[in-house]
Design a protein around this nucleic acid. Structure first.
Length: 926
RNA sequence: GCGAGGGUAACCAAGUGGUCAACGGUGAUCGACUCAAGAUCGAUUCGCGCAGGCGUUCGCGGGUUCAAAUCCCUCCCCUCGCACCA
């Protein structure tokens, strides 16, 4: 059967591969590759395909190079997303139903089961395995697990015991975005609006108002000395509430918020905003000030009341000025308290007037506020009578003073609003207690990670800086959750370990996953894992024999050689796993390298499941064949670059595979005697082998394909052109095919497996030895001769096209010996600018005069234009050009259909002959 | 805003001082084969040129150099990350 049928090849190979990639410790050197396991909440698209195919190509490459390769896979099912999905499906949310039923093509009877979240991940996990297998990904499936397996939970508990004992896990309180309807913290992806909002810490300044307090929130407590009034919104209903037992006047919204931030709040009565206007309030640091009306005061911002510092806040300045322009409160004057370079006595006035702002609603107001805020913070200094400290110092000092002496409290609030939950409710800030953290901020821990990072191999090298910044920047990570799937947190079983935190050292678990299943989870105490992973002996270990065999696995495989993952995981997962590894494992078991992937585009637009802009991997395999999908994904971009899936390109990739297939089928039985051109072909092949090997060693899948496919294909074109008439390919083509199939086997394993059977008879190409370049077959003489010939052919073609006449004959005039001498001298010269003078010192050259200097100049230009390797070879050993052309005379005459003469330029009469240079003969049309 | 990466001909993309008018691939045009279509093969694809050449190009502008897509500076634009989420 010689037909090109990818589907047939796939069936053939799958039968032989069933258990082929199961990998056990052996005498061979190991190579352990791991990729971030998927969260199977939907169908795989071609972007996922690339994520798993890249490591597979690398795995297949190293396997052929004789290493014991481990490439395992598992499924991450802990976390909350699937819970939301199952709820939405149960509630018949049309968008979700559409996604799962129509796009992911989940059968209705399965969809009905999706009310149970675990069913969803189980369903898609088996789909993943099926499609990965269809793509030919060489995974050891015996080691498959999910993160809710009881044995895995025991492993996580063991890990956390160590983290805890090392002081990396701490308990604290923490302000979070919170939805009171869902009764849960709100993540970025759960926000309808306000995803850029940050939680800011405000100081509440407590103004005395008769028997109650009016708290105003500020970021600038030091400006208390310049307060001239408070602002209240006359159209808002405020409340009088008992907050921690004392009476506060605040907005209704504020009462609700404060109740979430460690305060007991009891609303007593409502107070109309207008009833507060013109009332006097006081604070020990600013004395008595009035409450003034302002429509801009937002009851949903902090306490709903604010203090006014017109000298330093542009908003306050304009609001006051507007009231005064209406003839009111003329007695109030801005009170400056900060001196700052670049501004006059009243900075807010200065800035507003300079910007020409006349109106409260001017959209430059925010920028102006920010400008003054920054200027005063970085360069401002309080007046002597207020202590004379720089603002950056005074701000904290005054805040502390207020909290200690004047009853101030802290209130958390967003910097921009509104912030709205997916459920439609306004998000608030809540202080969460009993929240546990991984202390990634710990400088000592960071230092260990940095130090290890500097020893790691990172691909591509540019990501190193990003990793370093991430390690610096990481803060404490909240590592427990209240909802979702996962392992219970050992010190508070009401909480779960957060899903990113349980996925940090699972690469070690793969080494034992297929064996630990045989042990009752109840027996898996921390001591058991201490033995397997750390070699710590202890009494009464169960199932010692099994443990020993797991210890052997771990010691053989670990540490992993490379971890593959998309670049968006640098700032969390990829860095987290380094923290956890350095915390748990000894130095010789720490990760050795990481490869970071780019993103996937579909026809130029970002791939996104939620937007429906995806091409399902299964459909791609069905429509184009697994090898086509693989070769396209590997060849269209290097792994770390973004790739763009476009059907038209995929179609042409399939044609390329077919061309390769046909070439091998046609050539594999060639038996002719080899000619010089065969020697050329094999010589070139050695370079392709070398460069493909180097590219794959560096994870450059695209570069490797350029060499292994297009490089060889181009050579074959020249080869066929040069083959003497009536002569078939030689038996060397068989050698070439054998090499070519193996070079392409990591990329298109199905086709390769099929062809290998045809050419080698038995054995799997997946386990056959990777080709090694044979130096003895490299023949630079022949390569140089062909280079000269093809360049000359190109020249003749371009002249022929230009002058548009059919010549009767073509004469090729090779350069005379003395020009070769000049060429050599220049090529070997250290300083090419002075070499011409050196040449002209020679008598015979000087006698040639101008002719010689011109030739020297032309040679210099030519040398710059030729590839350095060519110049180098020529300099080492010049070739006999006349001989090369004589040998190719028949070929040239066939190519151009006219008589071809070869002459020495000196003996030719034609003026053109004088232009002959080494490696660039004169061409004369007659 | 902060951090990282990037802008190359119709499109994708290689290329980090002279091998560069710029690899390779797509698309397009022409030609061969064919009754025809498809597939396949060959040629062309910045401008000019009836002799292998010249001119102008690598986000914009400026600089360094005998020589710049490549090094330096200003600016413009794009992508990714900025966390309690996989």
């Amino acid at each position: 059967m010689n037909a090109f049928d990818l589907g047939e090849f796939e069936k053939e190979a799958q039968e032989q591969w069933t258990h082929a990639f199961e990998s056990n410790p052996s005498k061979l050197e190991k190579c352990y590759l791991t990729v971030a396991y998927p969260y199977p909440s939907g169908a795989m698209h071609v972007g996922h395909g690339r994520t798993y195919i890249v490591p597979d190509v690398i795995a297949r490459f190293w396997r052929m190079r004789g290493k014991q390769v481990l490439y395992p896979m598992a499924f991450h099912v802990t976390g909350a997303p699937v819970i939301g999905i199952s709820k939405r499906i149960a509630n018949k949310d049309p968008k979700t139903i559409n996604l799962y039923r129509d796009l992911y093509k989940v059968p209705q009877n399965v969809l009905d089961e999706f009310a149970d979240p675990l069913t969803i991940v189980r369903h898609f996990a088996s789909e993943y395995q099926r499609v990965m297998t269809a793509c030919g990904i060489s995974i050891d499936w015996r080691r498959r697990f999910t993160t809710v397996d009881p044995t895995y939970s025991r492993f996580i508990e063991w890990q956390w015991k160590h983290l805890y004992e090392a002081g990396h896990v701490i308990k604290g309180a923490h302000p979070v975005r919170y939805c009171t309807v869902d009764d849960n913290p709100v993540g970025d992806h759960d926000l309808l609006e306000g995803d850029t909002a940050e939680v800011i810490r405000f100081t509440l300044v407590m103004f005395q108002y008769s028997d109650a307090f009016i708290p105003t929130a500020t970021l600038r407590p030091e400006t208390i000395y310049g307060v001239t009034n408070l602002w209240a919104n006359p159209n808002v209903t405020y409340v009088r509430a008992l907050v921690d037992g004392s009476a506060w006047i605040i907005s209704k919204e504020a009462a609700e918020k404060l109740a979430l931030q460690d305060h007991t709040v009891e609303i007593k009565e409502e107070i109309a905003g207008r009833d507060l206007i013109d009332k006097m309030v006081s604070h020990p640091l600013c004395g008595n000030v009035p409450v003034l009306p302002a429509d801009f005061v937002d009851p949903d911002m902090a306490t709903g009341l604010v203090m006014s510092v017109p000298a330093h806040a542009p908003f306050d300045y304009i609001a006051l000025r507007d009231l005064q322009n209406a003839g009111k409160y003329a007695y109030i004057k801005p009170v400056p308290l900060i001196r700052v370079e670049g501004y006059g006595g009243i900075p807010a006035q200065d800035a507003v007037e300079r910007a020409g702002i006349t109106h409260q609603m001017d959209n430059r107001m925010d920028a102006l506020t920010q400008e003054i805020y920054s200027a005063e913070f970085s360069k401002g200094r309080l007046f002597e009578k207020y202590g004379g400290k720089p603002v950056r110092v005074a701000r904290d000092d005054v805040a502390v003073l207020m909290i200690e002496k004047y009853g101030s409290k802290i209130m958390y609030e967003f910097d921009t609003r509104p912030v709205v939950c997916r459920c439609g409710n306004r998000v608030k800030v809540k202080i969460l207690h009993d929240q546990w953290f991984l202390k990634y901020s710990d400088p000592e821990w960071k230092k260990q990670v940095s130090s290890h990072l500097s020893d790691m191999a990172l691909v591509p090298p540019e990501v190193r800086l990003e990793f370093e910044r991430t390690v610096d920047w990481l803060k404490d990570w909240a590592c427990t959750r209240r909802v979702g799937l996962g392992t219970r947190f050992p010190w508070d079983p009401t909480q779960l370990i957060e899903p990113l935190s349980d996925s940090t050292i699972y690469m070690a678990y793969y080494t034992i996953a297929h064996k630990i299943r045989e042990i009752d989870p109840k027996l898996l105490t921390p001591e058991v894992f201490d033995y397997i992973f750390l070699g710590k002996e202890s009494a009464d270990l169960p199932e010692k024999k099994k443990l020993d065999s797991m210890r052997v696995e771990f010691l053989y495989w670990y540490p992993y050689n490379y971890r593959f993952s998309a670049k968006d995981l640098i700032s969390n997962h990829l860095t987290f796993q380094l923290f956890h590894h350095v915390a748990i494992f000894p130095k010789d078991k720490l990760p050795q390298g990481m490869v970071v992937f780019g993103m996937g585009l579909l026809n130029g637009a970002k791939m996104s499941s939620s937007k429906g802009n995806v091409f399902l991997l299964e459909d791609a395999v069905r429509d184009f064949g697994a090898d086509t999908v693989r070769m396209f994904l590997m060849g269209s971009a290097e792994p770390w670059q973004d790739f763009d899936w476009r059907n038209e390109l995929v179609v042409s990739t399939k044609k390329q595979i077919e061309r390769f297939f046909n070439t091998v089928i046609e050539s594999k039985d060639a038996a002719g005697e080899p000619h010089d051109i065969d020697r050329w072909l094999l010589s070139r092949l050695q370079a392709h082998i070398e460069r493909t090997t180097e590219a794959l060693s560096n994870f450059q899948t695209r570069q490797a394909l350029q060499e292994a496919y297009f490089g060889i294909d181009t050579d074959l074109k020249w080869y066929r052109r040069r083959l003497p008439e009536n002569i078939d390919g030689s038996r060397d083509l068989h050698t070439l095919c054998s090499v070519w199939i193996r070079l392409l086997a990591p990329f298109i394993p199905f086709t390769a497996e099929h062809l290998w059977k045809k050419i080698a008879g038995e054995g799997l190409v997946s386990f056959s030895p990777w080709p090694v370049a044979d130096k003895r077959l490299v023949n630079t003489r022949i390569e140089l001769a062909e280079e000269l010939l093809s360049r000359t052919v190109e020249d003749i073609e371009s002249i022929e096209k230009l002058i548009q006449i059919t010549p009767k004959s073509i004469t090729i005039s090779v350069a005379p010996a003395w020009k070769h001498e000049i060429f050599l001298q220049i090529a070997n010269a250290h300083d090419r600018t002075t070499v011409i003078k050196e040449i002209m010192k020679d008598d015979t050259m000087r006698r040639r005069g101008r002719e010689a200097t011109d030739a020297a100049k032309q040679c210099t230009t030519l040398i710059h234009r030729l590839p350095p390797q060519v110049v180098e070879s020529l300099a080492r050993e010049p070739i006999n050009e006349a001989q090369v052309f004589e040998a190719a005379k028949k070929f040239l005459e066939k190519e151009f259909g006219v008589l071809v003469h070869i002459t020495d330029a000196e003996s030719g009469k034609h003026v053109k002959a004088a232009t002959a240079l080494p490696f660039k003969p004169a061409i004369i049309f007659e």
